[in-house]
Design a protein around this nucleic acid. Structure first.
Lengths: 208, 208
DNA sequence: ACTGTTAGGATACGACTGTATCCATAAAGG
DNA sequence: CCTTTATGGATACAGTCGTATCCTAACAGT
């Protein structure tokens, strides 16, 4: 047998080439030949490791979901026990908003996939499933905080969580379109976390 | 001369055919021939009334912006004087969220354009300009309400408006993806308007 | 009535698409 | 050693794309 190639590694390289194109030139600029060129291989190699273009697109979507999940998990879930409830929300929402260049590119690709899924049934199943896990986790956490007295009793945890996630998505769109800076988006999130959890002590000036 | 055709009317028909395709099959499904078929004319006619595909896309974007502007204006700005500040916000935000089938289709097309503009410089200039007018109008209105004592003094009108608009966009995305119903999105908006303007009197049960 | 312009039908061009096929090479197993 | 199999280069195919061209038909102005 020939060179004995690691198929998973090859597929990973091609998937990353695909996402690089999708995030910089859009999902409609993704073609078999473009992926090959971006990855520095021939067209045949792309065909060899992926049966279909659809398989390639599916792989890109899966990798993207894994990346976003990883980002949220690394920022928050690792030491979720040690963080305050507010800290958890800051971490999760901060992980959703595009901050550095890489997360911006990933958000761009994700937006492209999401939009394509709205009119393409082949992508809808994979891209339009609601990520219940994150929402449930935050709702549970916020409900607990409310029972502990850290959240006003007239707040509805489910609605508050749904709001913050939808708000983060809306802000993300505006950051991607460069209508708002990352800092401005973060400020808006913080404003609402302040209201949610009351005038927090973190950076309050010392009492005179 | 021949049939003496109304060029503007012809262009309007073709633009609407374009938007019909973009909102149901996506912007990447829009081709000259598809537009011709959708409008029931020949390819040559499409070429005759639009010099470019780019001109066609620009026309679609302009029509879309006009429709959304019209929707907001009809719901709110016409009798903005007679409405309460809360009523204005309900009207504007309700006009942004896709409600009936037509506004859903328009929102789909708008989302497709916005996403395409993120990676296509030819669309970026027209689609990624911040609609300052609406935001400024609402901010002014909210500031006035605050001065009249209808809004708690520790609220920041600018941030509140930016939040509600970004929230409406985020909720719109979830409604388009059928992850949330229109009613659920409206409930979330109302929840926050309740908090903004205090426990409102509109539907409060009569005091015993 | 003739002429010139406008409106569109028909067709073609080169580029690009996803996919399929043919064939060469290289290494592992007998 | 030699056959088999995994890898990938080269090329082809049938569509579709935006755009260009050619030509005809119908009417306005003179």
């Amino acid at each position: 047998m020939p060179k004995q190639v690691d198929h998973d590694e090859r597929r990973r390289q091609l998937t990353e080439a695909l996402l690089r194109i999708a995030s910089t030139r859009g999902l409609q600029a993704v073609s078999m030949r473009e992926i090959a060129a971006e990855a520095g291989v021939s067209l045949r190699v792309v065909q060899y490791y992926f049966t279909d273009k659809q398989a390639l697109l599916d792989s890109g979507l899966a990798e993207l979901a894994a990346r976003l999940d990883r980002r949220v998990r690394q920022r928050a879930a690792a030491d979720t026990g040690r963080l305050s409830t507010r800290g958890v929300f800051e971490a999760v929402l901060g992980a959703i908003l595009p901050s550095d260049e890489q997360s911006r590119l990933d958000s761009l690709a994700w937006t492209a996939y999401y939009t394509a899924a709205l009119t393409d049934p082949a992508l809808a199943a994979a891209a339009l499933t609601r990520p219940d896990a994150l929402e449930d986790f935050l709702t549970t956490r916020l409900t607990t905080a409310q029972q502990a007295g850290d959240l006003a009793s007239d707040r509805d945890p489910r609605t508050e969580v749904a709001t913050l996630l939808a708000l983060a998505n809306g802000l993300t769109a505006s950051v991607l379109g460069r209508q708002r800076s990352h800092a401005a988006a973060t400020a808006i999130i913080d404003y609402h976390l302040d209201r949610l959890f009351g005038p927090t002590a973190t950076l309050r000036p010392p009492p005179d």
